[in-house]
Structures are given as C-alpha cells and as structure tokens.
C-alpha cells in the first residue's frame, strides 16, 4: 500500500503533471469485465508469495476460450509471476507459494492429486528468451510428443513435427535442415521453434512470457502474426512489455500494478477509454 503510493508519487514527480492525482486506492476491487461465460481458465483470489514477500494480491479473472488476453504493466508488477502460476511453473522456484484457485475447465490445478505433467501438456509456455534445447530442430519439436508418447510411429512423429512447424510458420525456412542444431537459428526463428515445440503436444492454452522482448522488430512482427493465427485454435495469455503489441494482438487486456490486477477490459477500451486512473497514467506513458 505504502509502496504503491510512493511509486505512484514518484511517477507524478518525475512526469510533473501536478493536476493529475495518482494517489488512488489500489485496494479497491479490479474494475472492468473480469468474468465471462464458459471460461477456459478462471482464477479466483490468487495470491503468490516468494518467501515472506507477497508478489500477487487477490487476483480474480477469467480467460475465455480461444481468446488472446494480454497482461501489461510496469516491470516488477507481477505479471510474469502471475502467468507462471497458471501452469505451475512457479513450483520450480524455491520458496514460492500460491494461494487461491486456478481453474482449468472447472478443475483446480493446485489440487493435491493433480499431476503437473498433464497440466503442463495442456497449458504450454513460451519464454522470454528463446530456449531451444541443444538438439536438432527435429528433436526439439519431437521432444514433447516423444516424452508424452503421442506418436505411434515414426511417420506419426514426422507428421507432428511438420504440422507444428507449419503452424509456427517455420516449415519453409527449416525443412531442408531439420537435423541441424536448433541453436543455429536466428533469434526470431528460435522463438518460433519454441512456439512450434509448445504446440507440438497440442495444448489447450499457451502462455507467452514476453515472447518478443529479445527479438528485432521484423521477427516481432512475424511472431505477432503467428499469435493471431494461433488464436483460432488456442487460448493464449501473453505478457508483454509493449503496449502496442498488446493493442495489436489481444482481445482483452489486463493491467497489473504492484501485484494487483487493476483493470480488465476489451483491448480497444483499455487503450481508448481506460476506466482506472492508473491504467490511464500507464498507457499515456506517465510511468512504466
């Protein structure tokens, strides 16, 4: 609370707009249309802690089927942490604790008896920095189907690899060198490889954690196109640093501030008439 005020205050100081009072009470509930009918995933009162430090405060929001939801906010606002709690990738972080409910098709993924293997096969993830395995392009894509036993034969596997690469728009570029190391590709190609790798196990939801932050504008444009195509088949949650990107690819946008979800609204509305002062301050570039 105190921190929020201080941060907001410093933002006003530096941007020198004395008329605008940014000292808003952030404890109030999230504004906007948080919920929807038949959600693919729904989060209820999610709190995330790193040791004693709380990173996410009481976030409740739904993600509809086949929608692209963008999560924006200043750095350190917890958007990545929140995203990682959607497929329990936070389990790998020492001392990380998640409270509240995260429902996937109505089932809590933090249930005791749930196997994260199945969960993560259904909720895939693409990371900030492209992280292809030090294996061939083919092996990178085939990794998921192999460990999950999805391919019954070599032909099956070839099909999955080709299909995934095609969906990721990488097939034409790499079909001649499937057996060369994936690390030899350019940054943008590597990231599309990672996306292809994620969709090879046909997940239902894909989480993307700033997938373009390490890429140049041209590569970024390709990934954005790709996201649009993918949204026909997948539900996508994307964390991004760039408001333009959120505006371009997403249907709804969620604005996070210091671990709290401030506003969720259709993207168009967020960028034209934000309901909340903090959102407005952020999208008009007064801090972030």
């Amino acid at each position: 609370m105190k921190q929020a005020k201080a941060a907001a205050k410093s933002a006003t100081d530096t941007k020198s707009n004395p008329k605008q009072n940014l000292e808003v009470d952030t404890t109030q509930a999230t504004v906007g249309n948080r919920f929807c009918e038949n959600p693919k995933m729904s989060m209820r009162d999610v709190n995330v802690f790193y040791g004693d430090k709380q990173a996410i405060y009481d976030v409740s929001v739904d993600i509809a089927k086949n929608e692209v939801i963008a999560m924006i906010g200043p750095s350190g606002c917890g958007k990545s942490t929140f995203l990682r709690s959607l497929n329990r990738m936070n389990d790998t972080v020492d001392g990380c604790k998640v409270e509240g409910e995260v429902l996937l098709d109505g089932h809590n993924i933090y249930q005791q008896n749930l196997d994260v293997v199945e969960l993560r096969a259904r909720v895939g993830m693409v990371f900030q920095k492209p992280n292809p395995f030090p294996k061939s392009i083919f092996e990178n894509i085939a990794y998921g189907p192999k460990i999950h036993g999805l391919a019954d034969s070599r032909v099956d596997l070839d099909e999955i690899v080709e299909g995934s690469l095609k969906k990721a728009g990488l097939w034409e570029e790499v079909k001649e060198r499937l057996h060369q190391p994936g690390t030899g590709l350019s940054g943008g190609q590597q990231q599309r490889l990672c996306i292809a790798r994620a969709i090879a196990v046909s997940p239902e939801v894909i989480l993307m954690d700033e997938p373009c932050s390490a890429l140049d504008p041209i590569a970024t444009a390709r990934i954005e196109e790709l996201i649009e195509e993918l949204s026909q088949n997948f539900t996508i949650a994307i964390v991004t640093h760039s408001m333009q990107q959120a505006a371009r690819v997403s249907h709804r946008t969620a604005y996070f501030h210091l671990g709290k979800l401030i506003e969720v609204n259709p993207t168009e509305q967020v960028f034209t008439m934000p309901e909340h002062q903090l959102t407005e301050a952020y999208i008009t570039g007064r801090f972030g």
């Binding site: 293997v117 199945e118 096969a121 460990i147 999950h148 036993g149 999805l150 196990v201």
Partner: peptide
C-alpha cells in the same frame, strides 16, 4: 487434442 490427453493420461503412471 482429447485424443492426446487420453494418451498422456495413460502414460502418467509409468512416468511417475
């Protein structure tokens, strides 16, 4: 997708 899920589910025991 559902087909895959079935396969994954059936592999879980062995893998754990």
């Amino acid at each position: 997708s559902t087909d895959n899920l079935q396969k994954i589910k059936s592999s879980l025991k062995r893998r754990s």
